[in-house]
Measured scan of single mutants.
Amino acid sequence: MPSETPQAEVGPTGCPHRSGPHSAKGSLEKGSPEDKEAKEPLWIRPDAPSRCTWQLGRPASESPHHHTAPAKSPKILPDILKKIGDTPMVRINKIGKKFGLKCELLAKCEFFNAGGSVKDRISLRMIEDAERDGTLKPGDTIIEPTSGNTGIGLALAAAVRGYRCIIVMPEKMSSEKVDVLRALGAEIVRTPTNARFDSPESHVGVAWRLKNEIPNSHILDQYRNASNPLAHYDTTADEILQQCDGKLDMLVASVGTGGTITGIARKLKEKCPGCRIIGVDPEGSILAEPEELNQTEQTTYEVEGIGYDFIPTVLDRTVVDKWFKSNDEEAFTFARMLIAQEGLLCGGSAGSTVAVAVKAAQELQEGQRCVVILPDSVRNYMTKFLSDRWMLQKGFLKEEDLTEKKPWWWHLRVQELGLSAPLTVLPTITCGHTIEILREKGFDQAPVVDEAGVILGMVTLGNMLSSLLAGKVQPSDQVGKVIYKQFKQIRLTDTLGRLSHILEMDHFALVV
């Protein structure tokens, strides 16, 4: 994948999101292997301009796509893939009243899908469409860049269908997702969380590099694949309309690839034109409109599966009536509230959605109805927002919020430890010299600072030695090549209790 991002070429006709291997024109390309080798690009942008032909009021008969309808489940399912879809609609009884809503608040519980998330729908649909058009064949390999849930859905379907599955996901995604993927037989590649989507090191860039190296491999490409919004247009939206008897006044959905909100909203605009569509985008993402909503100094966020630093091709923002931004604290607070007060075992993005819903639905009156999409299960986040310690460490809970008995030293300040200034190293000294210094002084790690004293990161003896043994660096290389740029900081005025929580999850903390 090139470091400079080429513009994806656009073909003359058809839909841009065809499933299957992508040609340089962004659509299915038939021909000899030699032709494909000559024409197939190194990668295709996940934010390529959409060429979708959908228009409100256009006859369904003019759609270029294969459409399906929700099917009634048999008493005995032939395999677990038949437990994807037909998820329950559940009334939220307490939270709406707590925040003064007059309307009825309903939750579409997508964590009841077989793999635990709304992404099971698009995973199965992308595979079925690729099999139907002859792209996927027995023994082929599926590769997908994902925040985890699409990966789980694909790995689940691949396990049943017999495909090899490789999932490329950023490091910030939970260990629970990784464990589930491994249990399903998927191979996992992790990428830096802070890598831009168009960087060769991003999950998108690495996935395309693997595709170019592995024979008979395919990126189904949830960011561009029409099967993504079509899955929701054909099934999720129809289920909502049936469950609500066609009567709903507002739908609120958090947005990642945009397939969920695009597919549902398009069908609702056709069948229930008075329904307002509300999009939820986390602070630090750029999906919301108008652009002024996205202006923030924050560039990272903890909530998973929603928000991006690019506009995915499948996201149709014209069908969203209003956007709201959400933050991590309210997302996790509301997710825990949904679990504790409503018994809905949902993930953090569901918290984002409901946090926005109780604001947006203030305009609705008694007798009206708001539906929220709860995308995934708490299963993926047992060591994250479900953990009091994690919430404390991230600053989303305060010590006084917890009532468990603490040891005698818990409320003492870090400054009472009488710490001395640490050994520091410059980023320009060599790895070999740094190892000598650390061994001589008896230290395992040291902060790396520039000549102005600005902290650049941390270097550890173990990481340097393993990097040297693996051949990633040489003793003569500058130590700046092996620094940890993500590390926890703590102030002298913070409590030892807070430091204790940090050290339970990290090997060190830097006192500043």
Results as ranks from 00 to 15, higher is better:
3 S>C: 09
4 E>T: 05
4 E>H: 15
7 Q>S: 04
8 A>W: 04
9 E>S: 06
10 V>D: 06
11 G>M: 04
11 G>V: 07
11 G>A: 14
14 G>S: 06
16 P>D: 05
16 P>W: 01
16 P>G: 10
16 P>L: 11
18 R>E: 09
19 S>E: 15
20 G>N: 08
21 P>W: 11
21 P>A: 09
21 P>Y: 01
22 H>M: 01
23 S>I: 14
23 S>F: 11
24 A>V: 13
25 K>Y: 06
27 S>C: 14
28 L>N: 15
31 G>C: 15
31 G>P: 10
31 G>M: 01
31 G>E: 10
33 P>A: 06
37 E>F: 10
38 A>Q: 01
42 L>I: 14
42 L>S: 03
43 W>E: 06
44 I>V: 11
44 I>E: 15
44 I>S: 06
46 P>R: 01
46 P>D: 01
46 P>F: 04
50 S>N: 10
51 R>L: 04
55 Q>H: 12
58 R>P: 10
58 R>F: 08
61 S>Q: 14
64 P>M: 10
66 H>F: 09
67 H>L: 10
68 T>G: 14
69 A>V: 15
69 A>T: 10
69 A>G: 14
69 A>S: 05
74 P>V: 14
74 P>C: 12
75 K>R: 06
76 I>N: 15
79 D>K: 01
79 D>G: 09
80 I>S: 11
81 L>C: 15
81 L>Y: 01
82 K>S: 08
83 K>F: 09
85 G>H: 10
92 I>Q: 01
94 K>S: 12
95 I>W: 01
95 I>F: 10
96 G>T: 05
97 K>F: 12
97 K>G: 14
99 F>A: 13
100 G>W: 07
101 L>E: 01
101 L>V: 01
108 K>V: 01
108 K>C: 01
110 E>G: 01
112 F>V: 05
113 N>T: 06
115 G>A: 14
116 G>S: 07
117 S>N: 14
118 V>T: 11
119 K>I: 04
122 I>R: 01
123 S>T: 06
123 S>M: 01
125 R>G: 07
125 R>Q: 12
127 I>G: 01
128 E>Y: 14
129 D>L: 07
130 A>Y: 01
130 A>F: 07
131 E>C: 01
131 E>L: 05
132 R>I: 01
133 D>V: 15
133 D>C: 05
133 D>G: 06
135 T>V: 07
136 L>D: 01
136 L>Y: 07
138 P>A: 01
140 D>F: 08
140 D>T: 07
140 D>V: 08
140 D>S: 10
141 T>G: 06
143 I>Y: 07
146 T>I: 05
146 T>Q: 11
148 G>F: 06
148 G>T: 12
149 N>I: 10
151 G>C: 05
151 G>S: 04
152 I>A: 03
154 L>S: 01
159 A>D: 05
161 R>E: 04
163 Y>E: 05
164 R>F: 05
169 M>V: 06
172 K>L: 01
172 K>V: 01
173 M>C: 14
174 S>M: 01
175 S>D: 07
177 K>S: 01
177 K>A: 04
179 D>M: 03
179 D>N: 04
179 D>I: 04
180 V>S: 09
182 R>E: 07
183 A>L: 05
184 L>F: 06
185 G>V: 04
185 G>I: 01
186 A>H: 01
190 R>A: 01
192 P>W: 01
192 P>S: 10
193 T>S: 01
195 A>G: 04
196 R>H: 01
196 R>D: 01
201 E>S: 12
206 V>N: 04
207 A>T: 08
209 R>K: 10
209 R>T: 01
209 R>A: 08
209 R>W: 08
210 L>I: 07
211 K>M: 12
212 N>R: 13
212 N>I: 06
212 N>M: 07
213 E>H: 01
214 I>T: 06
215 P>V: 05
215 P>I: 04
220 L>F: 04
221 D>R: 01
223 Y>D: 01
224 R>L: 05
225 N>G: 01
227 S>W: 03
228 N>H: 06
228 N>I: 01
230 L>E: 15
231 A>N: 04
231 A>S: 05
233 Y>M: 01
233 Y>L: 04
234 D>S: 09
235 T>G: 09
236 T>W: 01
237 A>C: 10
238 D>F: 08
240 I>G: 01
241 L>S: 04
242 Q>W: 06
243 Q>W: 06
243 Q>D: 14
243 Q>R: 09
246 G>F: 04
248 L>T: 10
248 L>F: 11
249 D>F: 01
251 L>I: 13
251 L>D: 01
253 A>T: 13
253 A>F: 06
253 A>R: 01
255 V>R: 03
256 G>L: 05
256 G>R: 01
257 T>S: 07
257 T>I: 01
258 G>V: 01
259 G>N: 01
260 T>Y: 01
260 T>R: 12
260 T>D: 04
261 I>F: 06
261 I>C: 11
263 G>I: 01
263 G>C: 01
264 I>D: 01
265 A>G: 09
265 A>F: 01
266 R>C: 07
267 K>C: 10
267 K>Q: 14
270 E>L: 09
272 C>Y: 09
273 P>N: 05
273 P>W: 11
275 C>P: 04
275 C>S: 14
276 R>E: 06
276 R>T: 15
